[in-house]
Design a protein around this nucleic acid. Structure first.
Lengths: 361, 361
DNA sequence: TTGAAAGCGCTAACAA
DNA sequence: TTGTTAGCGCTTTCAA
């Protein structure tokens, strides 16, 4: 190694300097650094990985989507990985891909990652056979741990958040709350459904039939037309903001005003949520907190193979109340009020002055 | 190597099999594959990289944001990289990070990538000194090529798209078009501004003062309140959809209806664009096409170091016309019509029946 | 069509 | 506090 020669030391000493190992005199360190600088030297990662058996990289498996939730989580994960001194390797899966998550994990293993993060997975029946292959720690975000020997999970508190969202509507006085669910292949969608159901059960309310969307505003729009025909419906908890926005549009077309006739709660707090019409009440997801906490536990497992994994903690609940929720309208007659064809009523150009106002809870 | 022993061949032959090199008899190939299977063998990437000097990986530098545009581009890039047989290493930069792009590139170089993709960069004055360091091909998406020896650029057609968006409004009969620009540190924002200006110039229209936002709906909302005071304004081209949505909300609060009083065009075609109120006319960005084409050229440069780089091509223009644009309102009096305090007029519950209808151009 | 030898640039283990 | 000796598991080069 040229740097060693130029600095007049052994190769191993150079290695020590670059790894911040102890037992290097300040003088020698200086000489080595100087020589390295002069030669434009940089550590060769491949050689390092080969000799040490560790790549200092963490693989990330994500569903290839620009959906706000998954994308935000991934940003958080990348930052957290880098803060831990690791590098990131990414593999996207495509929904419907037969190889799916298992294939992605396999390719990451090929690349020799020291640990794996799986984000926002869907349960398509293709995973589950990872038990034998995976010998590195593996963290699953927003789902139960995979059946692998060194599995961890984080961010499974979605049910709690969904429950809080539902209870916000019940607290406003709504008799019950409808649910516009996400695709049930997604763990996150199932968690939210479950939290909603739990809230209704805890308060002894009737459980209306569930309408399922696919996360998109388009599916929320379709669901909205379906739900609008139910004259008794006064409140909807949508499993994400995009669907809530589509839903609100369909309700408006059907002559049901939000929040006057129907209250709507979303989930995620996407950036435009405060600016749509009306501004959306929604559950804010603590993406960064989940990513950071999960990563801390993953890195701990990587670096302390023997020790017990660190315990998980529940993410905080953070409801942002805006203008899409209100008390239910007064009931007009004991029977079903026929308001499906209610004509457009009055002017509507003075929405509540709350562009970005938000209240936490 | 155990596989070699078990198959009764040399190490080199195993290598040949796994690299699909010629000159291996079918019989030998079969034996090797069989032995590998039995031993659960997988190629060690670190060793491979060390011996060959190539990592078969491409580094991606992105601004750490969940904005729809950048996030979509990155998904496209990941897919394109993988389709080319490379793996992906990601580094996010943080806006305001002093190290910035140069630091990210450096860290990627440390990791030994064979090529680099930089996406959606902002011009913060920190890059530019990469010329000496970077010896691998480097592709910049949505910006001029970096001053590096093997630099490429792709997706710089934003000005053309902005021009088309502006001309759509002029074609509808608007006297001129205002522009709600993105932050001018972003190349993309500057391109769009330039395209807008070019369209106005080509048609001999007056160029109104530019209002600058930061891509967020919040900034669009603020800009909307500012623009609403100009009674002559009848059309706005917003540099992205989020800002357009905030803008429309502010206009509504100021009593200016969209599209009756003011037409608005956005940029990106984010998923909710068809479902906000009113559905947004917007320029759709061909993220996948840009990513794929750019990557093809990058890989070509990696694998043919001597050859001339492949030429770039302009992305297609794809305007999605929805309900936020219409001809300007008839002018009421020769002077300035005092309509800033115009009261809410009539019912509004029957938006045009165009939930997702779109027209290409 | 196959194999032997050498070494990529580092770190582990031990010695001095 | 520093150095020596071996490899890590592949690919390269050359020879058979």
């Amino acid at each position: 190694m040229d740097v060693a020669r130029l600095a007049g030391v052994s190769q191993k000493t150079v290695s020590r300097v670059f790894n911040d190992e102890p037992y290097v005199s300040a003088e020698v360190r200086r000489r080595v650094l100087e020589a390295a600088e002069e030669l434009g030297y940089r550590l060769n990662n491949a050689a390092r990985a080969l000799a040490s058996g560790r790549t200092r990289s963490i693989g990330v498996v994500t569903l290839g989507t620009a959906l706000y939730g998954p994308a935000s989580l991934i940003m958080g994960v990348e930052r957290a990985v880098r803060d831990s001194g690791y590098t990131v390797r990414v593999v996207n899966t495509v929904e419907g891909d037969p190889a799916g998550v298992a294939g992605a994990v396999d390719s990451l293993l090929d690349q020799g990652v020291d640990g794996i993060v799986i984000s926002e997975p869907i349960d398509d029946g293709h995973d589950g056979d990872l038990s034998g292959l995976v010998d590195v720690p593996i963290l699953v975000l927003g789902a139960p741990p995979l059946p692998a020997p060194r599995a961890l999970a984080a961010g499974v508190g979605a049910a709690l958040m969904a429950r809080a969202a539902t209870e916000h509507l019940l607290d406003l006085g709504h008799a019950t709350v409808h649910h516009l669910a996400g695709p049930q292949r997604w763990y996150a969608a199932r968690d939210r459904l479950e939290g909603w159901r739990a809230a209704l059960a805890a308060h002894g309310r009737t459980v209306p039939p569930v309408v399922e969307g696919d996360w998109s505003a388009a599916s929320g729009y379709a669901a909205g037309h379906e739900l609008a025909s139910d004259g008794d419906m006064t409140a909807v908890f949508a499993a994400n903001d995009d669907m809530a926005i589509g839903l609100i549009r369909a309700l408006a077309e059907a002559g049901r005003r939000v929040p006057d006739d129907v209250s709507v709660v979303g989930f995620d707090d996407i950036p435009v949520a405060a600016y749509v019409n009306p501004p959306l009440t929604t559950m804010r997801q603590p993406f960064d907190a989940v990513a950071q906490e999960g990563l801390k536990r993953l890195v701990h497992s990587i670096e302390n193979p023997q020790a017990d994994p660190l315990p998980a903690s529940d993410p905080p609940v953070d409801l942002v109340v805006r203008a899409s929720t209100a008390p239910p309208p007064p009931r007009m007659t004991p029977g079903r009020a026929r308001r499906t064809v209610s004509p457009p009523s009055g002017g509507r150009h003075s929405p509540p002055p709350n562009g970005g106002a938000s209240t936490h809870n």
